[in-house]
Structures are given as structure tokens and as C-alpha cells.
Amino acid sequence: MHKTSLGAVLAVSAATVCAPALARDTINIVGSSTVFPFSTAVAENFGRGGFKTPKVESTGTGGGIKLFCSGSGVDTPDIANASRALKASEFDACEANGVKGITEVKIGFDGIVLAQSKSSKGFDLTLKDIFLALAKDVPNDKGDLVPNPNKTWKDVNPALPDTKIEVLGPPPTSGTRDAFAELALEGGCNSFPALKDLKKSDEKKHKAVCQAVREDGAYIEAGENDNLIVQKLVANPKAVGVFGYSFLEQNAEKIHGAKVNGVAPDYDSIAKATYPISRALYFYVKNAHVGTIPGIKEYVAEFTADKAWGPEGYLADKGLIALPDADRKSSAANAKALTPMAKPAH
């Protein structure tokens, strides 16, 4: 039966392949789930202007770039969204597959917040506190690395309340988790001089120590659904949630964000980069497809117009933190000219 059915199915599919692969009149966008809400908002507005609405897939940054770099034929995506910059290794993979000429467009910032239910007293954390609360191994009094012994926030810092450490955050597959580990944990890690020096002597070990999240139940992987984390926070005032700024903004009556290094997460502090846990968001355009697939230039223009990505634009309403004016101008000019990017340093 296997042979018959599979053979028949394959025959059917083979017969239908040839026709649709030839031409495509919708833009294909793949990539980060963090950029997804912004990208879709632009796509929808772009679709109102007479073009077909682009198809936006939420595959995660890594998966999206892999698809984007898989070749330059029309069956590959035209644009990849990313919640981090393209890596050198990915750039090489792209080149190897014949994808030459990629335009990098930096679109703005996203803050990662540590939020709690409104019914709890607000936290005032430092990056060091976050590291001590959530890292897998922490240095003890003598400076030796030991498995994280801290059970309550008070163990971390006597100024904090005596409640159990309970942090709900994204799983390892998420770009938000990568950014959180890199910005918050590693930032706190570097406040220990011994660990900071490690970076020069053994970069790999430094990364392993500084970005490892504890696995003894204090950090709870709550899945990719940030709405779920918000609901859990409301039900449990002692828990802390980790997610993108836009969810804090939309649920301002239920949760509030913890101050980090004395700065509360809000639009201005993230835009000015005084709030320490924020990252840049990007999208990448395959220059070879411009002209082949209708509308790519216009889509990029829609995205980089001030009515979209400006501080007053509709993406700001969705939670995107705009770039400073000068950066926005140069980035938009760069995007318009489709200047291919150079190979990233690492």
C-alpha cells in the first residue's frame, strides 16, 4: 500500500508543480516573530495601496535567514526579518548559495522587559541582580563558579523582597531569549571583574558561563505565546515575566515593568538606549529579486516612510521604538538605493 499511495501522491504533486513556480506577484517575507507584528502592519498598509498584500511567515530569525539564503530563485523569500544582525556565517552561506547583494535595513528597537502584575510592588533591579537570579552558575564569595544557590530575590540582593525567584520567559528557540541572555545576563555577568576578564582569555567559556540560564525551575519556559505569560503574571503576583515591550504597552493596566539599573522601560528610555535591555531589529532585502517580483521597492519605501516607522507612525502604535532621526534618514536613503551590505565582522 505504501508504494501505491506514495507513488500516486507524488505523481499528482509532480503534475501540479510546473505551473505555479514560474511567476509570483506577491512578495514573500519570512523571519523573526518579533518583527512579525511590524512587518505585517506594513504589509497590510502596502496592500491597500494597489499591490497584492505580501505574505509574511513567522519562522523565527534563524529559520527565516536559512530560507532566505537557500538560493536566489523566485521560489525563495524576498525579504527576511531579523531580531538580530545577520551573522558572518549566515552571510557566507548566502553567498555560497548564490544570494549576492543583500540590503540591510535597521528599522528600530525593541525593549525586553521584566514585568510583574500590577498588584505587586515594582522591582528595581540591576543587571547584576538579573544575572545572579537567573544564571546557571554564579561566582561565590571566593570567586569560584558554583551552581546558582539563590532561591529568593532577597538572596540575590538584600534590598529586594523575600519572595521566591519565579521567572516566566521564552524558550531557547526564541530570538527574545537570545537577546535577553546576551544583553541582560551577559551585562550582569560582566559586572564581575573575574568573569569580564574571561572574555579576553577564553571567549567561548565566557559566553557559556555568562549566557547560560538556570534549569532548576526558577526560570520557567513559558512558550512563545507572550499573551499567555501576561495571563500567568496576573494570576501569580510573585512571578516575573520576560517579553517584548509591545506586550507591556498593550497590557499597561494589568502589568508594570521592573526598573533595570534604575531606568523604567518606556518608549523614551528605550529609544535613548538608557534602558539597558534593548536590541535593534532589521530586515534584509534580496536585491536580485527587485524588479523580478513586483512591489519590493515600494514595500521598502512604505516601511521606511515616517508615517510607518517614525516616532508618530503606525508602527510606534504597535510598539516599535523608532530610530533617532539622523539614523532613520540615513537608513532610509540606504534602503532606497538598495546598497548591498558588506560582510559582517562576526
Partner: peptide, 29 residues
């Protein structure tokens, strides 16, 4: 699992299905 605004008109148009739409909406802020 994609954001597709235009209602599909045939078997080879991009499309999502109901459970996927539910999943995507549940994830929207």
C-alpha cells in the same frame, strides 16, 4: 503559518487555515 490578507482564490494561492488563524491571533498583542 503566515500572515495572508488576501482571501485565496484557488489551490495554489497562499493560504492559511482556521486553526492557524486562531494560533496567530492568540499570539497578537
Amino acid at each position: 503559518i503566515a500572515f495572508i490578507v488576501d482571501v485565496p482564490q484557488g489551490f495554489t494561492d497562499s493560504a492559511t487555515v482556521l486553526p492557524v488563524q486562531i494560533y496567530l491571533w492568540a499570539d497578537s498583542p
